[in-house]
Amino acid sequence: MADLVNKFLPNVVANWEGDNGFVVAIWQTLYMTFVSALFAGVIGIILGILLVVTADDGITPHKVFYTTLDKLVNLFRSIPFIILLAVIGPFTKLIVGQTIGPTGALVPLVIGTAPFFARQVQLALVEVDPGVIEAAEAIGLSPMKIIFRVYLREGLPELIRSGTLTIISLIGLTAMAGAVGGGGLGNMAIAVGYQRFENDVTIVSMLFILVLVFVIQGLGDFAVRKLEH
């Protein structure tokens, strides 16, 4: 077995350990994915809820607020991620103190993902039956309670679906961020595998990313199945 690995994946073996090795790269990818998912998730949910409740047919309509937020979300969604990485360099430095490495990638990842997720959250929550919202209002629930007890509860399966989708697209972004200095499997595939013509490294990097994607998708589907009645 070991012989086989040595024979077909010599560069993977050579690059397995050490500061720039696969083990570190995997951890860096996981770190970038989950830390930015956490921040982007919270920001996205808050923005998504605000978009739903302040819309014209929402429970607390507010035209100016809604229009402004709506435009901002669109604006940030329109910036290509690779350009966003470069443009917000100084801002990144201000917040996390560095622009390279996995931590330097967090800020652009959050800013690149949160607006996308906000839109997903909005779409998920708009799907909640307006009749149920009306029933909750008739029962005498405050807007805050309607958000927590009706929107987030009834919309949960759909939110998890969007969350899964968002994390998967986030993994794609970490690879991109990695290639321009963020580290992780993206860096591994490009800086080591591609640029040094070590194809086995590129392929194994990709396989690791695929495994990560499948695991996330599987967990998401499982949770949705459990929650839907």
Partner: peptide
């Protein structure tokens, strides 16, 4: 909201929480 609790309401499409 308090006054609304004194007025029950039922709807054509029931409007129950599916979850």
């Amino acid at each position: 909201r308090k006054a609304r609790r004194n007025i029950g309401m039922i709807f054509q499409h029931f409007n129950l929480m599916n979850s």
